[in-house]
Amino acid sequence: MKLVRITLRWLFLLVLLGLGLTLVVLLLFRFVNPPTTAFILGYQVESGSLSGVRNNWVPLDEISPWMPLAVIASEDQRFLTHWGLDTNAIATAVNEFRGGEGLRGASTITQQTAKNLFLWGGRSYVRKGVEAALAVAMDGLWPKRRIMEVYLNVAEFGPGLYGVEAASQVHFGVPADQLTATQAARLAAVLPNPKVFDAGNPSPYVRERVSWIRRQMDQLGGTRLVGNFY
């Protein structure tokens, strides 16, 4: 019994240490740009190359306001009001699953940012639980503007292509601050599956998504929605 108590005590201390370090790193990244992400490192390991990644960090002021609007319209329309998790979207996804439909994602932009920075791909309850906890902590420690800035700089827009600046240059030959509304919607349209969808050569399905995203952008009020970011 003594050995069990000692083991449990050490496990508890390790968990506390892990939580403390995580909060310290989250607080640091509120002010310091992350040098890399778990997804970028994973891609480099899988590809066997450290030089095959394109990622050029730019501050939010140097990103067209159409881009944050496009990802909000496409990925998370309650981004500005929720606390890291969209409980309405989660409840809808659960009800659809219970009704016999496939399990779909209900991740917020905050959750996706946490996943890209710290976690791994694939679907599992363990990863989703950690992702949810990180998202709540991130939303408590970071302003929405910082979450959006980091998300747009770490999101994957294609194989080895990370961040909106690199994606904008590769697909459209312009810096991120010159993206038009339609170009921003094309980039946002590939986010659900950037290894398959191509913003530079969109399939008919991607074009349909772009049209839907553009309509949502208009319904949300255009760039006035993200005016506080700029």
Rank of each mutant, 00 (worst) to 15 (best):
V45T: 15
E46I: 11
S47V: 08
S47Y: 07
G48F: 06
S49D: 15
G52L: 08
G52T: 10
G52V: 02
V53I: 09
N55S: 13
N56C: 08
W57A: 03
W57K: 04
V58T: 06
P59S: 12
L60T: 02
I63H: 00
S64L: 03
P65H: 04
W66V: 01
M67H: 03
P68E: 06
P68S: 07
L69E: 04
A70I: 00
A70E: 00
I72L: 03
I72H: 04
I72S: 03
I72Y: 00
A73I: 01
A73F: 01
S74V: 01
S74A: 10
E75V: 01
E75P: 08
D76C: 01
D76H: 02
Q77R: 09
R78M: 05
F79T: 07
L80N: 07
L80V: 07
L80D: 02
L80E: 05
T81M: 10
T81W: 09
H82L: 03
H82E: 04
H82W: 03
G84Q: 02
L85R: 04
N88T: 13
N88R: 14
I90C: 09
I90H: 10
I90G: 10
I90N: 11
A91N: 11
A91Y: 09
A91H: 12
T92S: 15
T92K: 15
A93S: 13
N95Y: 09
E96S: 12
F97R: 12
F97M: 14
G99L: 11
G99C: 08
G99T: 06
G102N: 09
L103M: 13
R104Y: 08
G105Q: 13
G105I: 09
